[in-house]
Amino acid sequence: MSKGVVTLLPPHDGHPGMEITWAADCRQAFNQGVNFAQTWLDNTRSGWLWAAMIAERDHLPRAIERRAFEVGFLSRIHQRLCSPRQGGEPVKAVALRL
């Protein structure tokens, strides 16, 4: 396992991105979360957001990967909710260490 692996959430919907440093390489799980949230946002939302997240997250084997998926998923949803296009407040870019 590597230490201090950086994952990037790109800007989206007019909202800035962010940088997250993980104790292990969680980039794939994080990106899966981001992509799954984007798919949910782009398609007709026929199911509950929380149920979709939990069902997909539970396919990951390790707790840190499940956490990375959740962070990626909720970060993309946050970007949409806080988007200036959606009437949200602009937020400055941040860097997190998890």
Rank of each mutant, 00 (worst) to 15 (best):
V91F: 02
W40F: 15
V34D: 00
Q38E: 15
D58V: 02
E65C: 11
A23G: 13
F36T: 12
R66L: 14
L96A: 06
L81R: 15
S2R: 14
L60C: 06
V5C: 07
V5W: 03
W40D: 09
A29K: 08
R85A: 11
E89P: 05
P10I: 12
N31C: 04
S2E: 08
C26G: 10
H78Q: 06
L60N: 05
R76P: 00
W40V: 15
A55W: 00
H15Y: 03
P90G: 10
L8Q: 15
I20R: 14
M18L: 15
R80P: 01
F36L: 07
P84G: 04
R45N: 14
I64D: 08
K3S: 10
F36P: 01
R85V: 12
G33V: 05
C82N: 03
N31V: 09
A52T: 03
A93V: 07
W40I: 09
G33W: 02
K3I: 12
V5P: 00
Q86E: 11
V91E: 02
E70Y: 08
A29I: 12
A24G: 05
P61Q: 14
T21R: 14
A68G: 11
I64V: 15
V91S: 06
C82L: 03
D25A: 07
E56M: 06
F30V: 04
W48I: 05
L96K: 13
Q86L: 06
L9W: 06
Q32D: 15
V71C: 02
H59P: 01
V71E: 11
L9K: 08
H78T: 03
R76C: 04
D58G: 08
Q86H: 03
A23T: 07
I20G: 05
I54S: 09
L8F: 09
S83D: 04
P10G: 09
L9D: 03
E19H: 13
R66W: 01
L74A: 10
M53I: 04
L9P: 04
Q86W: 01
T39F: 07
Q79R: 03
D13L: 05
R57G: 04
Q28F: 11
K3G: 05
T44W: 02
T7Q: 13
G88A: 06
K3H: 06
G47P: 04
M18K: 07
V6Q: 14
R97H: 08
N43G: 07
Q32N: 15
V94D: 15
